[in-house]
Design a protein around this nucleic acid. Structure first.
Lengths: 400, 400
DNA sequence: TCGGTTTTGTTCTATGGTGCGACAAAACCG
DNA sequence: CGGTTTTGTCGCACCATAGAACAAAACCGA
């Protein structure tokens, strides 16, 4: 038996129970309206007896709660509506070039507490910045005064992270590299609450993939493009964010749009980021780098030629780069977030045409473009969603 | 309960058994050397009693067989080596611009019968060609004379297919579109053996992802690039071929390398295919389109400037296009197949450098390039592997 | 040669989770 | 107010795995 070790463990009876508990919990979370025990049984194919027993276990553990009976008259004995437990929640943190955020999300997807701070952390000192974030997190948790059970925490960062080791490898916009945020944050957080690192675009994409924990969003497959100082991205297939073999996926900002284009700080030439990144876009439009996308739109509306040229260039570069990704991955939808979300109405129609011209499968299914819901800190929500996904994946660990 | 229907079925006891049977079967298939019942138990974490009972079931159904005891002396009672059943097999078919293939692969990954026919089917009439393939398949099955139990069949096609409906949507190199190969093939095949359609590159990639049914290949994550008349590709993540939301993924041939480049028949400009496709490459080298990659290499070796320019152009285009994919998906390895496999030794070193310069994560993990094992019809093997994967996924259906 | 050791494979019983059928509960309907 | 309908619960049977003891088949060493 020299070769190989255990690849996967055999399932036992307790595995069965764990699996079904998770299924019941996810079924309740995914439902549009609070289902009864009988609804859960019908949707999972289990008997009412089994579904009820599992539900009872989840209710006892606080992961589900029984709601008030709805008063509208229906035939037969009324069922007890089931909802995800509102006292189970997770902490989502975010550091961005222009924002610090701490947010607590409960199992129903409600923001139960948050604090946001605007500022400029480009080229900042990591230590004090993370200290500030730690205090923000402590404040948020104090606001809640123990009204929730924290199931986990996550930290969104605008860069490449090694989630397993908890190390931020490189965040060019912040000027940070090779550090462990947990070392600074830990004293501010409850014991054992270790924030899992994640990439900003990956986590922001998660808020589009699931509108609440366990509730799938409108698109199962899409490419999320996050306009920040640079351009990040994330690929979502079958509702899951693809993290790549080492968790570094989604660098759509460095797809080559024109090999003869301007040099990029990544070492390559003509990267998408050089046309559609926030700084590049504003510079091309002759605006200062702290201008807003709204100003760019205003200038373009009044006929400013450099603003229009900047938008045209971004539109063309996005069409080329995104079409490549859509061709390789057969994704039907692109969701624009960050500053590109604000420009979606302007870029949209022309960009859709550009994609249709370059995407091979467009004749059967025309690629669609849409804007992400406006939110200053979507990745903070995504970080909390990721932590809550652990609960949904294996509820047994949280039943104690 | 107005909303939604059953998303996933609850697990029951029989599910447990089915899941564990599959695990045992896959464990045996994945092993380097034939394991004993005790080995299986150790690797799966099951008790020897349970592992033995599951193994007995699989042996009774012919999915596993007991081998001869190996004579090398070891302490303790010798175990009975277990092997995948050699009588369970699947049929893999392939239509390519220059090849028809029918191949039967058994559960151990051995080719137990095959017939290949060279020819030129560019712009061919689908009916007669598929008739020919059907006769080829019937011949192969007659060779076997019922010595195997066919578990399924697959058909690899160089184009975009709708596997669910069994329709070939468009195969530009063949000049085929919107047809159902099963209509022509069915009379030549045993009743009920309906070949599942698949894309040539996807299925060829599968042979790299698993060297035999259930046995993972050397790389869990890689990009397969298939050099045909055009350039196809497939993304393999965690050992699984990503088929995209509609099964049309992998069109790396139409990633834009240079927006000002030559027009492509897909409607876009400067596609990779215009630089690294077989026809484009040979044309650039001043060779006739039926020349071989070997001739191209010979010309380049003797210093022919147009041959070298063609190779340089392909190398540069591949670097740009593949780097984009590697950036977005965080894939560490590229496997070159088809005519590009033959050119890998020539393109390799320079191409690896080009990728390293453009891939963002290269500083932590340098992208690697390698050639696929030479095989005239890898996609036929892949089609059979796909069918056999159904057996490994749920062996219960095949035990009866 | 033969008992001790080691590892494999089998047998038996216990545990635990789900399915099934019956029944009680809680509403509406006529 | 009884009939109908749907929900939730209870008790029992079934079945798959765990665990432990036992039988089998080899090697090792005296």
């Amino acid at each position: 038996m020299a070769d190989g070790e255990a690849v996967q463990l055999g399932a036992r009876q307790s595995t069965l129970r764990a699996s079904n508990l998770g299924l019941v919990l996810r079924t309740v979370c995914a439902a549009d309206a609070p289902p009864s025990r009988a609804d859960v049984a019908a949707r999972t194919g289990m008997t009412r007896a089994t579904a009820a027993r599992l539900v009872d276990g989840l209710v006892a553990g606080g992961l589900l709660v029984e709601g008030e009976r709805d008063p509208l008259p229906r035939r037969g004995r009324p069922g007890t509506p089931l909802l995800p437990g509102g006292r189970v929640a997770a902490l989502g943190l975010q550091v961005d070039a222009g924002l610090l955020a701490a947010r607590v999300l409960d199992l129903r997807g409600r923001v139960v507490a948050e604090r946001l701070v605007d500022g400029d952390w480009v080229g900042s000192d990591p230590g004090p910045t993370l200290e500030r974030l730690g205090r923000l997190a402590a404040d948020v948790l104090r606001d809640l005064a123990g009204r929730v059970r924290l199931a986990g925490a996550g930290l969104a960062l605008p860069g490449i992270v090694d989630a397993d080791r908890g190390v931020l490898l490189r965040a060019p916009n912040l000027g940070w590299h090779d550090l462990r945020p947990a070392d600074v944050l830990a004293p501010h957080l409850p014991d054992g609450l270790d924030p899992v690192l994640g990439n900003e675009a990956d986590l922001a994409a998660r808020t589009v993939a699931e509108t609440a924990p366990g509730r799938p969003g409108p698109h199962p497959d899409f490419l999320y493009v996050s306009g920040q100082i640079g351009v990040g991205g994330a690929v979502v297939l079958d509702g899951r964010v693809m993290r790549g073999s080492a968790g570094w996926a989604g660098e759509v900002g460095h797809v080559c749009v024109d090999p003869d284009g301007p040099p990029c700080r990544c070492g390559s030439t003509g990267c998408l980021e050089q046309y559609a990144g926030r700084h590049a876009l504003l510079a091309a439009a002759g605006l200062p780098r702290d201008a807003s996308p709204g100003q760019l739109l205003d200038n373009a509306a009044t006929g400013d030629p450099s603003a229009r040229a900047a938008l045209d260039g971004a539109r063309r570069a996005l069409a080329i780069a995104l079409a490549g990704v859509l061709n390789v991955l057969d994704i039907p939808t692109v969701v624009l977030g960050g500053h590109l979300g604000g420009l979606a109405a302007e870029l949209g129609p022309g960009l859709e045409d550009g994609l249709a011209a370059r995407v091979l499968s467009a004749r059967w299914r025309r690629p669609r473009l849409e804007a992400a819901a406006p939110d200053a800190a979507p990745a903070a929500t995504g970080a909390a969603l990721r932590a809550l996904a652990d609960v949904l994946a294996d509820p047994v660990r949280w039943l104690d």
